[in-house]
Design a binder for these strands. Sequence first.
DNA 1: TTGAAAGCGGTACCAG
DNA 2: CTGGTACCGCTTTCAA
Lengths: 343, 343
Amino acid sequence: MHVGTASRALNPAQSGLVNPATRARVVECAARLGYRPNAVAQSLRNGTTSTVGVVVADLANPYFVQLIRGIEAEARPHGVMPLVVETHDDSETLERVVTRLIANRIDSLIVSAAHMTDEPFIAAIEAQVPTILAVRTFLDTGPGKGVTDRRREVLQDDAQGARIAAEHLIGLGHRRIAQLRGDPTISSFVGRSRGYLEAIAAAPGVCDVSTDDIAGTSTIAEGRRIARRLLVEGPARDRPTAIFAHNDLMALGAIDAVDELGLSCPEDVSVVGYNDAPLIDHAAPPLSTVRLPSWEIGRHSARLALSGDDAESSVPVRIMLTPEFVVRSSTTAPPARLRDAGA
Amino acid sequence: MHVGTASRALNPAQSGLVNPATRARVVECAARLGYRPNAVAQSLRNGTTSTVGVVVADLANPYFVQLIRGIEAEARPHGVMPLVVETHDDSETLERVVTRLIANRIDSLIVSAAHMTDEPFIAAIEAQVPTILAVRTFLDTGPGKGVTDRRREVLQDDAQGARIAAEHLIGLGHRRIAQLRGDPTISSFVGRSRGYLEAIAAAPGVCDVSTDDIAGTSTIAEGRRIARRLLVEGPARDRPTAIFAHNDLMALGAIDAVDELGLSCPEDVSVVGYNDAPLIDHAAPPLSTVRLPSWEIGRHSARLALSGDDAESSVPVRIMLTPEFVVRSSTTAPPARLRDAGA
DNA sequence: TTGAAAGCGGTACCAG
DNA sequence: CTGGTACCGCTTTCAA
């Protein structure tokens, strides 16, 4: 009884070709000896590893964890294991980890960590391994636009999310609003900025009083720093009564700044975030924010990744999911005196 | 010029054995063709994968993310890639993912997801691959205790953390204190419970008024549920003026319960958590909690994992790190009337 | 239905 | 210093 037979007996797809008796014997032996096929050898022989690389910007951002779980939910029934790595939003790290994943012969790759400046690198990668962009993409490279139109991506509509956030503030009566912009090399923040400005432009009498100071990192500290500038500089009558932060962390920082200046949120300044991070509903005050369907984005990404199209044969896809506004307590109508002044 | 030579030229450890000229030529060709050694083939040949399996209970718990980053920091300089998976605290999932990791021939394994009931399984795994237990362990299996005393583990002192938390409350004048216990099959919670009870026992006039209701999962919802029982059942004069929750999430739930009952934290009820999760300092109110050095635990774990001892030759190690109390605004002296009543 | 053997892509030993 | 070759563990084709 030899190795070929054993291999067949243990492989469900081939075990029909082997005598039930021998098969039973093989199975029994395997169980007794605790035999586990060496996945490394299988990978080498089969040319496939049953793994999918998952590159996220920041594991500490619970948003990405949901994305990973969506991927895992789709991948597991296929026996595919996600290999998760983070980049800390650093391009060098991105290149390093993706290179390593490819050396490890992942079957496909899901990237949710790209900066727009990473386009050339990602384009090169797409030629090597089936790749899906999740959440973040590059501008003007959708289906039919530009040379890299074989790209497959799963996004949520940042512009729309920002628009509904801004419209919420406008609807409450705010007339001077500012945004706290995240890194402009990240497509999400570009989209949010655009949607916000569109909503402002569409509302008569409402003006954008943002600074041109952009957050280096999308953290509490940066949100706090920029919000302080907004609330301290210039004549009081030009200061915003509402702030749209490009993510929840910066929103938290903005609230800190409001508090520290002896003002309060939402009475003096309303604040909106983006992401609906876990625990953010327990912030002081509970944050109004934009919820995006990260788990679903993960699932769709994995579905595309596992669909077996290789980089050559794949048809371009852009799946766009819709965010949703969550009203909590960090937003309300502006103070009456300011509202009158603004009208 | 043939494959063996190329292999040597590309391997830093052997490239000395090859003529600098040929070597340069090889390197140049490799670069031009974008050659990357197939890590799968290398692994098969070398019998080593340069990967470490990292099994955590819950990626959404930022505590584990810090652990992972500590591991990564130690592993990267060695060219070792962490393979991260989560179990959602489910034993079946634990067995499934660990089995998969072993099939993939990880060089070592770090487990931070074990329940005490997983002891037999983990013991079996330890015979197959060098294994480190991080944060969670089994009881009475330290060096010299019991048959499995080759175990290597990196822990923090849960009993001490709980003790300093309880002593903080006692020092503020609380006399009726309750704990919100987490899953008793998880060693961390056993240790915390023990430390808490020791501190109470050591303080004359202070009594433990906990229910015997234990959280099924260490979540906000469970914390809220049990805290409600504590604050609603029995005569008012027996209710706790302070609650020690076994983790931050349950503490948040307890604060929710306090609010919902028309009481307030910390004026009526003080609440302490455990872990010092990110954002917890922005909760309402900012939570007093026990901070544990998760990053350091990760680093130590990885150091042991990479130390090259195989399961046979390894010497048992237990590294115990010290937690630290963080005072914020969720704790204060008990209300005067209750304090008098209790005295 | 089973055995024999080739080969996945490297590495390392040995001979030259 | 370089070329030839065996082999890591498994799958699969081909023959028997």
